[in-house]
Design a binder for these strands. Structure first.
Length: 198
DNA sequence: ACAAGGATCCTCT
DNA sequence: GAGGATCCTTGTT
């Protein structure tokens, strides 16, 4: 997918697998997205926008291609990419492309997949906070998205940590990951995307 | 103004 | 596998 704003202004379910081919850059750190979840707007009972417009979720209503960052459990800064109105994709895991030493430092010296598999870890590695929520990810400076490398295979499975959602949404295979990499969380529940497409 | 709970992570066992 | 950390967001009084 080209990094045009119109490319992001679609259902999060369409955008999510295409994000797996993109890189996130902030300062000297460059991460390749390896796992994302689609949150499909107000009708998705797992989405923050299912309760309507609030001060926190304002960026999710547009424009597309901006960041939505919120604080989880009082300490984790979670990064989402805004898609169509009310839709966004949560970045759950990445692989380091540049700035490995700095990422390892920020992550307390961790090594291997534990370094970057989990949305809170991605926020820590990029050193982002909710102060950046609403910023454009398609600009030329600051936190931004760049073209990376398409995945050899795409895996899919249910989203993580949304037990409160309606069963119809809780069990939907709206989580996507790169195949052929260990940089993915909750690998057990993922299967080849082909197998769960209609 | 208050209470409840959270799209998680880490450290144990 | 279980539990605590930690504080913001939200809906309610």
């Amino acid at each position: 997918m080209a990094l045009r704003r119109s490319g992001f202004d679609r259902d999060a379910l369409e955008v999510a697998p295409e994000l797996l081919g993109m890189d996130l850059v902030h300062g000297p750190v460059r991460l390749r997205i390896s796992e994302v979840e689609a949150y499909r707007g107000p009708t998705d009972s797992a989405a923050h926008t299912s309760m309507g417009r609030t001060a926190r979720n304002t960026p999710v209503w547009g424009p597309a291609g901006h960041a939505y960052i919120y604080l989880c459990y009082g300490l984790h800064n979670m990064l989402n990419v805004v898609c169509a109105e009310g839709h966004c994709c949560l970045v759950r895991a990445c692989e380091v492309v540049e700035g490995h030493d700095l990422v390892r430092w920020r992550r307390g010296g961790k090594e291997g997949p534990v370094l970057l598999t989990g949305p809170g870890k991605v926020g820590q590695a990029l050193r982002i906070t909710t102060a950046l929520s609403g910023r454009d990810l398609l600009g030329r400076a600051g936190l931004r998205l760049l073209r990376g490398e398409d995945p050899p295979e795409v895996l899919a499975g249910p989203r993580v940590g949304i037990d409160y959602a309606d069963p119809e949404h809780r069990d939907a295979p709206w989580r996507f990951a790169r195949g052929g990499t260990r940089w993915v969380s909750q690998r057990k529940s993922l299967v080849s995307w082909e197998k769960c497409s209609p």
